[in-house]
C-alpha cells in the first residue's frame, strides 16, 4: 500500500513513521515536520500498528513491504524527496514519482513541467494523444484551440472522445476528460479556428506550440507566428501508416516554411482522403509529446533541427538533419 505526502501530513499522528534510508540521505534530505524512528532495509520492522516506511524515492520501501510481508505498512509515494518538496513548497509531486526518479527529469524537471504552458492547435488525431500525455506527465497549463465538433468518424483515433460526445465541441469534451486525468491541471479552451487574425493573440504567454493541425495553410501560419513570437513549435503530421515530427524555430533553427518552402500536395493526403489507421496518430502524437517534454525539461537529445520520418508499416525511421 502507498500513501502520498499530502495524506500523510493530514494523518501523520495515526502512523509510526520509519525512515529506512542511509545516514547520508537523512542528512541531505531531513524529514522536517515528521517524528521518525530509524531503521534500515536489512533490519526487521517490529512495530505494531499502522506505519509508514520512508526511503529516498519511495521505490525501495514498496518492494520491502511486499518482500518482508510487513503488515499494516504503507510506503511513502515519492519517498523523502517528495516529502521535502511538499513540506517546503506545499506541492505534492508524488504522483509523478516514476518519472521524477529518472535522472533526466528529477524534481527540477517536474517543476518545469508544472510551470509550463503548452498550446495545442487542433484537437483531432494528433491533438488528443498529445494533450493526454502532457496532462499525465504533469504539464501545468494547457490551451486547447479548435472550433470543431466531435463526429463518429473521429472516434477510432481520437481517444479523448466517446459516443456520448458526438456533436459536442471537441475542446469541451477534451477538457472534461483531461481534468479527470489530473484535476489540478489548468485548461483554457478557445473555440475558434486558428487564423491570421487571432493567431498571435491566442499564442501569447505560450511556452511551446503543438502543431496538430491537418492542413498546410495552418502549418504555414503557425510557423510565421512561432517565428514572430519566438515560441518553439513541435510539428507533427500524418499520412496513412506514416508520420513526421520535428521541433521547429528554436533560437533560429529551421521552421516549417524552410523545411517545406512553397509546399504543395495533390490534395489526396489528408486523413479523410488517404485514410489513417487508429494507432498512427497515437504513435506520432506521443512522439510530439515526448519531444515537448524534452524541450521543456532541457534534455538536449531531441529533434531540434531534425526531421523524424516514421513508417509504421515496416517500422523504418529516418532522422534527417535540417
Amino acid at each position: 500500500m502507498i500513501i502520498t505526502p499530502e495524506v500523510l501530513n493530514k494523518q501523520k499522528n495515526d502512523f509510526t513513521i520509519i525512515d529506512v534510508r542511509s545516514d547520508e540521505e537523512r542528512q541531505n534530505f531531513p524529514l522536517l515536520g515528521l517524528d521518525t524512528i530509524l531503521s534500515s532495509y536489512d533490519e526487521s520492522i517490529n512495530v505494531a500498528g499502522k506505519k509508514v516506511l520512508v526511503c529516498q524515492f519511495g521505490i525501495v520501501t514498496e518492494g520491502m513491504i511486499i518482500e518482508k510481508n510487513i503488515n499494516n505498512a504503507f510506503s511513502l509515494l515519492g519517498g523523502a524527496q517528495a516529502w521535502v518538496e511538499y513540506y517546503n513548497e506545499n506541492k505534492d509531486l508524488s504522483r509523478w514519482t516514476r518519472q521524477i526518479v529518472l535522472p533526466e527529469i528529477g524534481i527540477e524537471g517536474q517543476k518545469k513541467l508544472l510551470n509550463c504552458q503548452v498550446s495545442i492547435i487542433g484537437m483531432g488525431g494528433l491533438g488528443c494523444p498529445v494533450a493526454q500525455s502532457l496532462v499525465m506527465a504533469g504539464i501545468g497549463k494547457l490551451k486547447l484551440i479548435d472550433d470543431d465538433f466531435v463526429s463518429i468518424s473521429n472516434l477510432h483515433r481520437q481517444p479523448l472522445y466517446s459516443f456520448q460526445d458526438v456533436n459536442k465541441k471537441k475542446i469541451l469534451a477534451a477538457k472534461s476528460k483531461l481534468k479527470a486525468l489530473n484535476p489540478e491541471v489548468t485548461i483554457e479552451t478557445d473555440d475558434v479556428f486558428f487564423d491570421d487574425k487571432n493567431g498571435e493573440e491566442l499564442l501569447l504567454n505560450t511556452d511551446v506550440i503543438i502543431d496538430a493541425t491537418d492542413n498546410i495553410k495552418s502549418r504555414q501560419r503557425i510557423d510565421q507566428i512561432s517565428k514572430k513570437l519566438k515560441i518553439p513549435t513541435v510539428y507533427g503530421a500524418l499520412f496513412r501508416f506514416e508520420g513526421q515530427v520535428s521541433i521547429l524555430n528554436v533560437n533560429g533553427s529551421a521552421g516549417y516554411n524552410e523545411l517545406f518552402p512553397n509546399s504543395n500536395t495533390n490534395g489526396e493526403d489528408s486523413c479523410a482522403d488517404a485514410g489513417v489507421l487508429s494507432m498512427l496518430p497515437a504513435i506520432i502524437g506521443n512522439i510530439q509529446a515526448l519531444e515537448a517534454i524534452k524541450l521543456i525539461v532541457g534534455i538536449n537529445n531531441n529533434l531540434i533541427g531534425k526531421l523524424l520520418m516514421y513508417d509504421g508499416m515496416n517500422h523504418k525511421t529516418e532522422v534527417i538533419e535540417l
Binding site: 487542433g122 483531432g124 488525431g125 494528433l126 491533438g127 502543431d211 496538430a212 493541425t213 491537418d214 492542413n215 498546410i216 502549418r219 507533427g236 503530421a237 500524418l238 499520412f239 506514416e242 508520420g243 513526421q244 529551421a254 523545411l259 517545406f260 509546399s263 504543395n264 500536395t265 493526403d269 489528408s270 486523413c271 488517404a274 489513417v276 496518430p281 526531421l307 520520418m309 529516418e318 532522422v319 534527417i320 538533419e321 535540417l322
Partner: peptide, 30 residues
C-alpha cells in the same frame, strides 16, 4: 524536398556513388 545521407539539401547537388537519398513530401494529416 531532398535529403542526401540524412542531410537536408537546399540546393542542387551532384550525387556520389553510394549516396542514400530520401525525398520528403509535405504531409498534412493530423
Amino acid at each position: 524536398r531532398i535529403a542526401i545521407n540524412k542531410k537536408y539539401q537546399k540546393e542542387e547537388i551532384v550525387l556520389q556513388n553510394g549516396d542514400e537519398v530520401v525525398f520528403i513530401p509535405p504531409v498534412q494529416g493530423g
